[in-house]
């Protein structure tokens, strides 16, 4: 066995347990050639149960092998989890979005993966199953180990789907990024927000920026700052200062200096919060 495209989950799990750690799962496989090849690969991209986006038990369930293109054009995601649609449209290029998957974006654990940043802002939970057929549910931000390394061991465990609470009345989400070029470019900073407004005041908020730490990072202090505040000019100014002040970032010769990146975190968080809040108009059905 070396490259196996499986058609059932059972087949996938059996293949993994049979090769006792020497096989690992892939879906889009776009990053395959960047790594050392394992002994064998189990391709999940044709598994029907993980290639659909559906509403289930009041949640949006996004199969791990849903491509970025499919997620970005899903009417459900566009209507109820707009940040994710925007994050998915920002990945790489159309060719990469057509084959790269949401699950891969999370499991590859790149510090500023666009879809993952959006998922974390939305409060997405990951559903996983291991070779012992045990399932667990985990917040997406808890799946990161270190730079480009996930806590999910792809030789033993399969990410099945991502669950997102839909943005309903009074809730909005948004994603934005800043890069040198408008396609085929990693961002200097990307940021996403989910916000719930009541009577014009922020009741709930999640603000995420990257690359800040190995995982896309929630800006907890800034979130606290905006609770019970209106999303107006004054608040946004304070958000900008707070967000930039809250993070410690690294500079990179290829993208930008640490100081500028820190400044951008402030600007982008304020901008993305504003867009999310605009979408959270209670008059509308959601974002």
């Amino acid at each position: 066995m070396s490259y196996l495209t499986v058609s059932t989950l059972e087949e996938a799990l059996t293949s993994l347990s049979d090769s006792s750690g020497k096989a690992r799962v892939v879906a889009g496989a776009t990053d395959l050639f960047l790594q050392d090849l394992p002994h064998s690969l189990v391709d999940l991209s044709a598994l029907p149960e993980i290639t659909v986006v559906e509403e289930k038990d009041g949640l949006i369930s996004i199969g791990a092998a849903v491509t970025h293109t499919a997620a970005a054009s899903s009417s459900l995601i566009l209507a109820r989890a707009r940040a994710l649609a925007e994050g998915c449209s920002a990945v790489g290029s159309p060719q990469i979005r057509n084959i790269g998957t949401i699950g891969g974006n999370v499991i590859n654990a790149a510090p500023a993966a666009d879809a993952a940043v959006a998922l974390i802002s939305l409060g997405a939970e990951a559903v996983l199953i291991d070779v012992n057929r045990e399932t667990r549910q985990e917040a997406v931000e808890n799946l990161y180990w270190t730079y480009n390394r996930s806590l999910v061991d792809s030789s033993k465990e399969i990410l099945l789907r991502l669950l997102v609470k839909p943005c309903l009345g009074g809730e909005g989400s948004a994603f934005t990024r800043f890069a040198v070029r408008r396609a085929l470019a990693l961002p200097m900073v990307n940021a996403a927000a989910r916000v719930k407004l009541e009577n014009g005041l922020v009741k709930k908020v999640r603000l995420v920026a990257a690359p800040v730490r190995p995982a896309p990072t929630r800006l907890i202090q800034t979130e606290e700052l905006v609770i019970n505040q209106p999303v107006d000019k004054d608040t946004l100014k304070r958000v900008e200062v707070s967000a930039a002040g809250e993070v410690e970032v690294r500079g990179s010769q290829l993208r930008c200096s640490a100081r500028y990146r820190q400044h951008l975190v402030g600007v982008l968080i304020a901008r993305v919060l504003k867009i999310a809040a605009d979408r959270a108009d209670p008059g509308k059905a959601g974002d």
């Binding site: 070396s2 790489g92 159309p94």
Partner: peptide
């Protein structure tokens, strides 16, 4: 040969993809 230029674009099940990033095992069927 790294998915950065698009010169190798082909259609895989009607979608444009970078053929340099597709392991041929993936096109089975």
């Amino acid at each position: 040969s790294k998915g950065e230029c698009g010169a190798c674009t082909v259609l895989l099940d009607d979608r444009a993809v970078n053929s340099c990033l597709v392991p041929v095992g993936k096109v089975q069927g």
